[in-house]
Design a protein around this nucleic acid. Structure first.
Lengths: 117, 117
DNA sequence: TTCGTTCTTCGTCGAATGACGAAATACTGG
DNA sequence: CCAGTATTTCGTCATTCGACGAAGAACGAA
């Protein structure tokens, strides 16, 4: 299992952090989470159905899709005149790794060992 | 195992999504990830050391800490004149649940089944 | 070619974010 | 009381975000 810091000398750790930040930021909006959820439920590719599903203007939805695509979280396959969107679960690996590390809260040579009541 | 949608009739799913969005948004900034990383490494409570660590102005750092605290990701215990910050791993559970569900990408009666090469 | 469908890009707007320094707050120590 | 330390709050500023409608682009159908 690869964690966040065992593959980073010093500079690339920053790069990894920035990548994780991009992923988290992309997920940090209800409309985009709704898109992700929709794509998860209906694994099938979807076009303008997403627009109806989330109830925002087409242009706004397109922007959210662009952000998710830029983060690598979804892929958009062109099928003129439609675009077929799918989830790309692998993209979330770095974020997942971070959260796993935090959640397991690997206790090691602790200093003050307390985390919360 | 509890997933995101099996505990949500319809409205509370929105609430859960908003909560997840808050968490993701809070993590969606390199400086805040650096704070989280720092708190993970040095499990010990930290005060102004964080300011030095991330290299931003004290007021800016305080703001980032406030955001993380508001999201519940960290806790700040007052120890005048210092504040002792700690990670609160449990807070990330909803976000972790979502990412787990996506990552496992539970294949079922798929429609177009493809995700990527 | 012209029309209809689907999506993206552009321009605009108000609101939120992220950064800073200065000042306020709240103790500890002289 | 006065100075020092650690932190937050405030005011400011530039930038980004998120929303929209209008216009543009790309293809299939007639």
């Amino acid at each position: 299992m690869v964690t966040v810091e065992m593959l980073a000398p010093d500079e690339s750790r920053v790069a990894v952090q920035e990548q994780i930040a991009r992923l988290a930021k992309a997920l940090g909006h209800p409309a985009r989470l709704q898109i992700v959820e929709t794509l998860r439920r209906r694994r099938t590719c979807i076009g303008c159905d997403i627009v109806e599903e989330i109830g925002l203007a087409a242009s706004t939805t397109s922007e959210h899709l662009r952000i998710l695509k830029a983060a690598g979280i979804i892929t958009g396959e062109i099928e003129r005149p439609r675009v077929c969107y799918s989830l790309n679960p692998d993209a979330l690996a770095p974020l997942k790794a971070l959260i796993d590390v935090i959640s397991t809260a690997d206790p090691g040579p602790a200093a003050t060992g307390r985390k919360q009541g």
